[in-house]
């Protein structure tokens, strides 16, 4: 194993890791937004919204994220959507992650005992007040860990955007293999950096989860 080579190229990998981190954060943000809207739609009183929410989830969970990225990035211009690779990566992965987060958020909300809403409504709170003051604060606590799992998957999924030539970790590794012919070292380095990003995220999620628990 060529440790020297790894030491020489790793600063470039750090730059690439920073791109991966930015991708992950923006994707997570968009995913959470889509997931919140998706969950609200799936739990709506209106059948149309429930249908749209369910369609969103099955469409984006039912096809490979890579195909979704390809359609957006390569197919997009054909229907007038012009995005650079990074934008396409964030939007494609964000909408995809949102489908998974929709189910996570919805799951947490429906797991709250129905007696909670009944008690709130009985006191005179409206449907929305009960949701906002009673259901969501409890559901939010239950969401932290499963959303952390979504986050873990999403970080790893950012490797897919190498296929649309976003210069992130995986793409960078491939590029350096082209010039060094050392795939073992290059992929190992990329893998290590992914591991660090995921480890730190995991710790952050665990910390947040402890922080929000009811004493």
């Amino acid at each position: 194993m060529d440790i020297d080579l790894m030491m020489r190229v790793y600063p470039f990998f750090l730059d690439a890791a920073w791109v991966t981190i930015q991708l992950s954060l923006l994707t997570a943000l968009l995913g959470l937004t889509c997931g919140t809207l998706g969950a609200a739609a799936r739990l709506s009183r209106l059948a149309v919204l429930r249908f749209l929410g369910a369609a969103y989830v099955s469409l984006f969970r039912g096809t490979p994220a890579l195909i979704q990225l390809f359609i957006l990035y390569f197919g997009g211009p054909q229907i007038g959507i012009q995005l650079d690779a990074f934008e396409a990566g964030v939007i494609g992965l964000g909408i995809n992650a949102g489908a998974y987060m929709t189910e996570t958020i919805r799951g947490a909300i429906i797991s709250i005992d129905k007696g909670q809403r009944e008690a709130a409504r009985t006191l005179g709170l409206s449907q929305w007040q009960a949701t906002y003051k009673v259901i969501l604060p409890q559901a939010a606590r239950l969401m932290v860990r499963p959303l952390g799992v979504n986050m873990n998957m999403l970080i790893k999924a950012t490797a897919l955007v190498a296929a649309i030539s976003v210069v992130e970790l995986t793409y960078t590794a491939q590029r350096y293999i082209g010039s060094t012919y050392k795939p073992f070292e290059m992929f190992l380095l990329a893998g290590l950096l992914y591991m660090i990003i995921i480890y730190v995220t995991g710790r952050a999620v665990a910390w947040l989860d402890r922080k929000v628990q009811i004493t």
């Binding site: 007696g115 008690a119 009985t122 009673v134």
Partner: peptide, 15 residues
């Protein structure tokens, strides 16, 4: 409902 208090078998306190 503001005028009708209700007490449940399983309390349903907000945890």
């Amino acid at each position: 409902r503001q005028d009708i208090g209700m007490v449940f078998q399983h309390f349903n306190l907000f945890p």
